[in-house]
Design a protein around this nucleic acid. Structure first.
Length: 581
RNA sequence: GCGCCCGUAGCUCAGUUGGAUAGAGCAGCCGCCUUCUAAGCGGCCGGUCGCAGGUUCGAAUCCUGCCGGGCGCGCCA
């Protein structure tokens, strides 16, 4: 529709021998007194045309060719051209909706391959409510970009290398020893959660006591257990070293694989239950073992972006806008986490993706410039990586903030949230707000007053339509109760509430495109709220199951179309569209 | 100190990348169920868009400087 009007205006500009302004736009009007669509061409082009906006608007109006789509055009305000559409042009959307069904709103294939990496939480414990936001947001991006026509994969990057994983394995082993009678105090800086002990018990069940070792002798002259960070870390490192030495590589690996498999299994189940599916689970350890870190460093060096200083290898990230250069290889020869991450991103690019999207917690925002610098240094293109930050979620329980600490095991898990609030409401709440807005999640409100949840407003509209269609099916012949069969009567839909709804439905495809372009699922949320509101208004204004057959069929047709759009939109959010409530 | 994000109604937040009289929800007040689901609808109340300049036909939106809040600034991961 907008394209058609753009074409009309282009003709008018050509007739006036003026250049059509490229930045001019046709917008949906907010006030119906301004027609259905408004063009700001005269305002934008006034300066280059050398005449006042309103004068230009008059000339454009005179030069505008007639169109079967347009009922009338008015000049308003400072020089807007307001278009009033022909009723049948407005009703045309119904035919599209019934022809395309679940695909209505989806764009043509773009041929673009996109990889969205999200959650990627360390497998050192259950997912908490902060991860949940990243999961819901990232998954919506996948759904949105697919709807927009891209070929999209979802990926979870497992940080299964490095010190945190050693701490995890050692924590499990210490609990295992405890169960065997060891009196070694459990270190404060190890993982405290009850799931560690439970996992250790299962380990013992599986392997018996073959992992028993005597720690005592190994800890003499080692840093003592302590509360302060420095000594506590040293103590823990000593325990990790002891575990590796006493168990040997093979048995240590056994403990590590045991807890890792359990953790990842739990995380995957948790996410699947949350309707978040990953095509790929990438492993940091595999990236390292495949020699990709060295390969990435070679690429950077070949591109002339590294140098050595004080025994370390540096990446000159400041050339690409980072605050300062970053270490890749430490003086002791070990690669930094950043070096591994560069290798991982190079691998993602090598797999043939045109665009990478990373979803990170907002606390990692300082990491963005260096990662973008790395991608630019590797490929020469800065825009192949897009990092989206998800701001914090603070949880209110009984009006009090819940403190969150992974180590202390005193956090609210995603699984708890799902149980309390449900998948639909929690997913909806997570993406209802822009991702760069902090989110206050009040559990008491979300659970006790669940009827006030905005998600129910949308779902209720859908259930209401289904109820009407059910009733119609009971009362009338099948031919009269089928929504689609009313297409031929669509010219009867001319009540104000129907006109407003038809205009809204026509905007759905462009809304999907806008949400995908802006990576903003909340745009879908607000659009759907408008659709639901439009429906509820209509429902209260006009009866559907009227005696006059043609009118009834027309209205059922519109109702069915609204249900389709609601269903399609809710599906983009991963929220169900119930048929009864 | 430097950097990123945020500041819009009593509260929680939108605002289609510069458009017309700044919008929702919740809370508060007043109405609407013998008829298709009242988890709904209509109405009222509520604003110096943090502050001050600037850019232009036009600014909540862009630029500069302040003020306030959050987060981050390791040869940690």
């Amino acid at each position: 529709m907008k394209d058609a009007l753009h074409a009309l205006l282009a003709e008018a500009f050509a007739a006036l021998e003026l250049d059509a302004p490229a930045q001019a736009r046709i917008e949906n009007t907010r006030d119906k007194a301004h027609g259905d669509l408004a063009a700001n061409h005269a305002l934008v082009a006034a300066k280059t045309a050398g005449m006042p906006p309103r004068a230009l608007a008059e000339k454009l109006l005179a030069a505008l060719p007639a169109s079967p789509l347009v009922a009338k055009v008015e000049i308003a305000g400072p020089g807007f051209l307001n278009f009033f559409l022909q009723a049948d042009a407005r009703q045309e959307v119904l035919a599209q909706i019934y022809a395309q069904g679940a695909a209505f709103g989806s764009g043509a294939a773009s041929g673009k391959r996109v990889l969205v990496e999200f959650v990627s939480a360390n497998p050192t414990g259950p997912l908490h409510v902060g991860h949940g936001r990243g999961a819901a947001y990232g998954d919506c991006l996948v759904r949105l970009l697919r709807a927009a026509g891209d070929t999209v994969d979802a990926e979870y990057y497992v940080n299964d290398a490095g010190r945190q994983i050693d701490i995890l394995a050692t924590s499990v082993w210490l609990r295992y020893l405890e169960a065997g009678g060891s009196k070694q105090p459990f270190p404060r800086k190890a993982y405290q959660g009850a799931y560690i002990g439970a996992s250790a018990a299962r380990l013992r069940e599986a392997v018996g006591d073959v992992l028993e070792r005597d720690l005592g002798a190994h800890l003499e002259n080692q840093p003592p257990a302590a509360d302060d960070d420095e000594t506590g870390d040293a103590h823990l490192d000593a325990l990790i070293a002891a575990a590796k030495a006493l168990l040997g590589a093979a048995d240590y690996r056994r403990v590590l694989e045991h807890i890792l498999a359990e953790q990842l299994g739990d995380i995957r189940e948790d996410l699947e239950a949350f309707r978040v599916h990953f095509e790929h689970w990438a492993s940091e350890r595999e990236v390292v073992d495949a020699g990709l870190v060295q390969a990435a460093l070679d690429t950077l060096r070949d591109n002339g972006q590294t140098y050595e200083q004080e025994g370390a290898l540096w990446f000159a990230s400041s050339r690409f806008g980072d605050d300062k250069d970053r270490v890749l290889l430490r003086a002791n020869g070990a690669a930094t986490y950043f070096a591994n991450d560069i290798a991982y991103h190079q691998q993602k690019l090598a797999r043939g993706y045109d665009r990478l999207i990373d979803v990170w917690g907002a606390d990692h925002h300082g990491y963005v410039p260096r990662m973008k610098a790395a991608v630019e240094a590797l490929t020469g293109q800065a825009d192949r990586l897009d990092v989206q930050l998800v701001q914090f979620v603070s949880l209110l329980r009984d009006g009090e903030k819940v403190s969150m600490s992974t180590r202390a095991g005193t956090y609210e898990t995603l699984a708890d949230l799902r149980r309390e609030v449900g998948e639909d409401a929690s997913r909806f709440f997570y993406v209802m707000r822009s991702n760069d807005q902090t989110l206050e999640f009040d559990l008491a409100l979300a659970t006790r007053e669940s009827a006030d949840n905005p998600v129910y407003y949308l779902q209720y509209a859908h259930a209401r339509i289904c109820s009407v269609l059910r009733t119609a099916g009971e009362r009338y012949e099948a031919a009269d109760a089928q929504p689609e069969s009313g297409l031929d009567e669509r010219e009867r839909l001319d009540a104000p509430s129907e006109t407003a709804l038809l205009n809204l439905l026509a905007r759905y495809p462009e809304t999907v495109q806008a949400a995908a372009r802006q990576l903003g699922p909340q745009i879908i949320v607000h659009y759907l709220r408008d659709v639901a509101e439009g429906f509820h208004r209509w429902y209260n204004a006009e009866p559907f199951l009227v005696d006059e057959v043609a009118l009834r069929r027309a209205r059922l047709c519109l109702a069915g179309a609204v249900a389709t759009v609601l269903r399609n939109g809710l599906d983009l959010l991963g929220v169900s569209a119930p048929e009864r409530m």
